[in-house]
Design a protein around this nucleic acid. Sequence first.
RNA 1: GACCCUAUGGUCUAGCGGUUAGGACACCACCCUUUCACGGUGGGAGCCCGGGUUCGAUUCCCGGUAGGGUCGCCA
Length: 448
Amino acid sequence: MSVRVRFAPSPTGYLHIGGARTALFNWLYARHVGGTFILRVEDTDAARNTQEAVDVILSGLRWMGLDWDEGPQTGAADGPSKGDRGPYFQSQRGEIYKRRVQELKDKGLAYDHEGAVKFRMQREPVTIPDLVVGDVVRELTDREKFDPDFVIVRSDGQPVFHLVNVIDDLEMAITHVIRGEDHLSNTAKHIALFKAFGVAPPQYAHIPLILNKDGSKMSKRDTGASLSGYVEDGYAPEAVVNYLCLLGWSPKGNREVVPIKEVVELFDLPHILRHNARFDLAKLHWINGEYIKQMDASRFGQLAQEALGKAGVVTAGFAPDYVAAAFATAKEKIKQFREIPSFTDFYFKDEFAYDAEAVAKSFTAENKPRVEKLRGAFAALTTFDAATLEQALKAVSAELGVKAGALVAPVRLACTGRAVGPSLYHLVEILGRERVLKRLDAALAKMG
RNA sequence: GACCCUAUGGUCUAGCGGUUAGGACACCACCCUUUCACGGUGGGAGCCCGGGUUCGAUUCCCGGUAGGGUCGCCA
């Protein structure tokens, strides 16, 4: 029987980073075994669920590159979908649930209770076979000993999570349920429900949770909990996905940066770790830098362009070669596309403010004659490329008896407005003589 | 309160009875250097505690502690 797994999020308006990893692990397993990855929307709480909330999930999964074989194509509950086990929105499956609840009633396993319908839960402990954790024997809690039965249909007629989740997994022929460990205890209920329907439950794999850096539970309010935050900050999706793979799973062999294709080959359920992991932004940051280094120029340019757009920097009027050259000087320097504006905006703006602290340090009376001399040297150059510029600057500094840095700092500030940025010689070459001399003049006017 | 899961440096992890306990991120120092970043070298830092089992436990068992989860007419 071929493997069928699903990611079944509830559209709450954002995609939790833990949910994103659950989706990823489901996808990885499906791709590893050549199975089917299904997306199902658990929108039973109609009041809270909107098409926009569903779109957040769809776009998040697409951003990560997790394609699904069955499921909705748009955020509309009654919109198009692919797969023959639909509908893939729970809000569209009311008739199925009604029929199944009747089945339980007919079997004497469900009964009406103050307007709601309750399931007659078994009183004995339930053994949960789990591919990650092993066999878990779930005893009844004190409250459950008092009354183990639980509501499966609310008094307003709405079926509850445990019921619909099981029915859908059953009807969609799900073979492996890969989900967060927060569902482990509840799995006893699910297994009992499957048994009640006369069907063998799927195999379970409960994966550890992702906690905050300090070990506390990551809830929607915590920074970093939402996938969209990483999209906004300009992380490369492949880096985020790679990092997520490393939380609760290991490629072994002391490897960290592993292409997703290889992860698909290596991934398997029994190798998933059993303990929770904490989310470490610093490591994601580093991985992102690694991916940026490997990235080809066109992909880098595309992501850089997006980052500049968000910062309101317009590159439209500049030649493609100029833009590409400008980006190239930032590529080896940044670890996050959020840094792009501060590394490249001066290429596209003639008006900019100088960093105040750097002004105090570099735009000094002492530096003025030095910069004037260098300006003269730059103006006299016959070729204006990085190598020549470096030579010229070093010649001037030698003549003046100062270190190269004494000239570099004020020139950098004059050309970029900042103390930190791309290689000075390269950025000066790209800006070109005309712009550079103009910027040096403007800076000289402020010195002394 | 009951039930369930978990426990290797600050963090992510390798390890699956005998290892100088390995790697990565982060941190510190130095080198390289036009800033930053990269790169290089070196460094500090770990098997939660207590009992067993065993010739020998980080590794197996039990207890404790700690963290997380569940016990809803939320999902």
